Amino acid sequence: MRKIILAALAAALLSLPAAAAPSKGKAPPPPALSAEQQARLPAIETYLNGIRSLKSQFVQSSDDGAPLTTGTFQLLRPGRMRIDYDGNGNYIVADGRFVYFWDAEVKEQQNAPIGSTLADFLLREKISLSGDVTVTRLAEDDGLLEVTLVQTKEPGQGSLTLVFEERPFGLRKWRVLDAQGRTTEVALQNPQFGVSLDTDQFYFREPGRRRERD
């Protein structure tokens, strides 16, 4: 069950980084982008920073043979996110400080600080494709643009690839490659941007319990 929980967190961009193999030296620097590719990054940043709220159905898949899962993804920047999985009662919620995963089968939760990993990339107040993250790849294929990034200081911990539809430009899916080489993909289905979302749902509470207010 613990393995399933961590895989779900990774798929949500809120992964607890799996332990990488011990390194015998400094990781090699990521490949440099061309000047033309670098010139595209500011427009991508502007688009991402323009997403203040998002609600979408999603399909989650992985390369380890696990069954497809579906659910609802909601984002309210900065800091808040919620993922409800269909059929099993599991959910993930970020409240601005921590990320919580509720395992309905055993009625337990796990949590981690948002900023402890690449987790908070889409949740931060100002998204930047430089600094603590480094873009290692930018590729266009069949009307899609893929942007892959890693943690600048720990590139071996895995990567996040954002996939955009080019016309009209919009985020459509993402892939997480973890330190063990497993890939999980989340594809958005009919995403709605700029929607009004109930802020009360972006707090962790056990199902059936009301949140105690300050």
Results as ranks from 00 to 15, higher is better:
D84A: 11
N90E: 03
F73T: 01
F169E: 08
Y47R: 04
Q157F: 09
R210M: 12
P155S: 05
G65W: 09
K26T: 11
Q110G: 11
E146F: 12
R80Q: 14
I92P: 12
V93M: 01
L48A: 10
Q157E: 13
V195M: 08
T161I: 06
V176E: 08
R213S: 14
Y47H: 12
R52S: 06
S116C: 08
R182A: 11
S116M: 12
T184E: 12
N88G: 00
L138Y: 06
L33C: 04
P155F: 04
P113Q: 11
E206I: 14
L16C: 01
R167S: 14
N90S: 07
K126R: 15
Q37F: 05
L123I: 11
A10T: 06
E212Y: 06
A18V: 15
F204E: 07
Y91E: 01
R211Y: 13
K153N: 12
D63T: 05
D63R: 04
L48S: 07
L149E: 03
Q151V: 00
P30Q: 12
L177A: 12
L6K: 06
Y203D: 03
D103C: 10
F101R: 07
A10S: 15
L68N: 06
V176I: 14
D95E: 10
Q37V: 02
I83N: 02
V195L: 07
T117D: 15
L118A: 15
Y203H: 14
G50M: 08
S56N: 08
D132A: 11
S116H: 10
P17E: 14
V195Y: 09
P113H: 11
L122Y: 10
R40T: 05
A39S: 11
R209W: 00
G158C: 02
G208H: 10
A32P: 03
Q189K: 11
L13E: 12
A35N: 05
D86T: 01
G115I: 07
M1K: 13
A11D: 02
R205Y: 05
T134W: 05
T183H: 06
A39H: 00
Q74V: 02
G208I: 06
P22V: 06
Q74Y: 04
E154S: 12
E36A: 15
I114S: 13
K107N: 07
D142R: 13
E140F: 01
T70N: 04
D142K: 14
V150S: 09
N90R: 09
G79Y: 09
V93G: 06
